[in-house]
Design a protein around this nucleic acid. Structure first.
Lengths: 121, 121
DNA sequence: CGGCATCCTTATAGATACTG
DNA sequence: CAGTATCTATAAGGATGCCG
């Protein structure tokens, strides 16, 4: 388990720890990116499919967020020159690996909610 | 392992999955919260200590973020009526449990950075 | 010591209409 | 189909000064 010792040594220098964690946070900052990534975890999708599957997202936000995710190496965009053109978005290896982060977030969120509810009743 | 099946059943209804993940994201949104939580993982701290340990945070942002974290059940604020007053901030159980989330974020961030560097050289 | 009040700038996001 | 363009509203964040 090399990763653990690597993490520990980084935590000793806590400013680097924060920088690395913020890298991850910045990749999914904003209101829509987690939803986009989650949708793409089920497989590659076209722009219009994403728009249908993500309630209330505007085309402006969808294309902006997709550009961000592409720039950060989370998704790849493929244009097929059919008529009319079709565009497919697919997660990169990092994008698929991000599922583990989302799962841990989900698990913590559920536990947290249980504790909050338990403490207020 | 009850948690896994619980997670799977939630992922089947993907909008709930997103809502729960966004709960977690909202708890640490912004520029400073991860740094504050990380600092408090080493033990309870006073306001002034946090300000010293978190480079460049202004008092306005520190107190705002601490209030947010307190409202979200992440930290508890304790006022000791010494003269002058001293105030201590400590993580709740959820706050300490959040270390696991941060560690997974760190691990993913390091792997992602390796892949990005590897793909550009 | 541990903040708050005020003012200001920038970032983020929504609505709507339009296009190659 | 897969987006842009434009405009507007709100939120986030910084600078500075003051207070119990």
């Amino acid at each position: 388990m090399k990763k653990i010792s690597e993490m520990e040594s980084i935590r000793e220098c806590s400013s680097n720890y924060i920088l690395a964690v913020n890298d991850t946070i910045n990749v999914i900052h904003g209101k829509w990116k987690a939803a986009i990534i989650s949708s793409l975890l089920f497989g590659k999708k076209r722009y219009g499919e994403l728009q249908k599957e993500i309630p209330k997202i505007t085309p402006r936000m969808l294309s902006k967020e997709l550009r961000d995710l592409e720039a950060n190496g989370m998704v790849v965009r493929t244009v097929h020159d059919t008529i009319p053109v079709t565009v497919e978005y697919e997660l990169t290896q990092s994008g698929y690996a991000f599922q583990h982060v989302l799962d841990v977030m989900l698990e913590w969120g559920l536990e947290h909610r249980k504790r909050i509810i338990g403490s207020t009743k």
